[in-house]
């Protein structure tokens, strides 16, 4: 039996909004560690990894590891029926073919439940080893979102370079080209407004902007984003989910013809 009670239901709503445009169907895995998901987009260019740790739930019961295949668009539709202040409980029976989402409003005078059929998904799980990255940049998530949006009005791809000068985002298109440099800046009022650059080695990689724009749907989950880059690896954009875990997006680079 599975029963997960999340007081801050809005988190789950935001998580679904962050993933549903990138991934259509995915398996949610539930174990003693937490509620997790790993899925690739249909073209296998990007991957999303979600972890909501068991400690972050008010009540977490998972008698045995369970995998639940769901259409993320349908889950998102159901979660739109939950208020932002609602408590969300996810329930499933071992071996059952449905999952139930229950929403309780803060006054506890309205309780809704939605039962959804699970899907049998044949999804591939990739092993992602810990890696040493050439550069790790932490910056305000809203700033990153703004940069991706602004550059995609000019070009389709972005070259992200990290040097001692800072992190540079460059694009080119029919109307011209653009460069945005963010320097390290730790003299800010709040730590989440800082741009912090850790660089072991200069790195420069090219990425498709449409995927980065899709990742920025997670902006409301975290005030900061951490971008990890290595010349031999996909980019990782990590949004921490306060007290619970993270949502990480991996993006394979583009290379010269």
């Amino acid at each position: 039996m599975l029963e997960l009670r999340l007081v801050q239901g809005s988190l789950l709503k935001k998580v679904l909004e962050a993933m549903k445009d990138l991934v259509t169907d995915a398996n949610f895995d539930c174990s003693a560690t937490g509620f997790s998901l790993q899925a690739m987009d249909s073209s296998h260019v990007a991957l999303v990894a979600l972890l909501l740790r068991s400690e972050g739930f008010e009540h977490y019961r998972c008698d045995r590891n369970i995998t639940m295949g769901m259409n993320l668009n349908n889950v998102s539709k159901l979660l739109k029926c939950a208020g932002n202040d609602d408590i969300i409980t996810i329930k499933a029976d071992d071996g059952g073919d449905t999952v139930t989402f229950m929403f309780e409003n803060p006054k506890q005078d309205k309780i809704s439940d939605f039962e959804m059929k699970l899907m049998d998904l044949d999804s591939e799980h990739l092993g992602i080893p810990d890696a040493e990255y050439h550069a790790i940049v932490r910056m305000p998530s809203l700033e990153f979102s703004r940069i991706c949006k602004d550059l995609s009005s000019i070009g389709d791809t972005v070259v992200i370079s990290v040097t001692k000068e800072g992190i540079k985002f460059s694009t080119r298109g029919d109307i011209g080209n653009a460069n945005i440099v963010c320097r390290q800046n730790t003299t800010v009022d709040k730590p989440e407004e800082a741009t912090v650059i850790q660089m072991n080695e200069a790195v420069s990689l090219t990425f498709a902007l449409r995927y980065l724009n899709s990742f920025t749907k997670a902006t409301s989950l975290s005030e900061t984003v951490t971008i990890s880059l290595s010349s031999e690896l996909p980019l990782v954009a990590e949004y921490k989910i306060a007290d619970m875990g993270y949502i990480k997006f991996y993006l394979a680079p583009k290379i010269e013809d």
């Binding site: 296998h44 389709d156 394979a252 010269e256 013809d257």
Partner: peptide
């Protein structure tokens, strides 16, 4: 412009 690599070229199935 350029060739888009796939995630599966970097990480293997478990």
């Amino acid at each position: 412009s350029g060739v888009q690599l796939s995630i599966t070229e970097f990480y293997r199935s478990t």
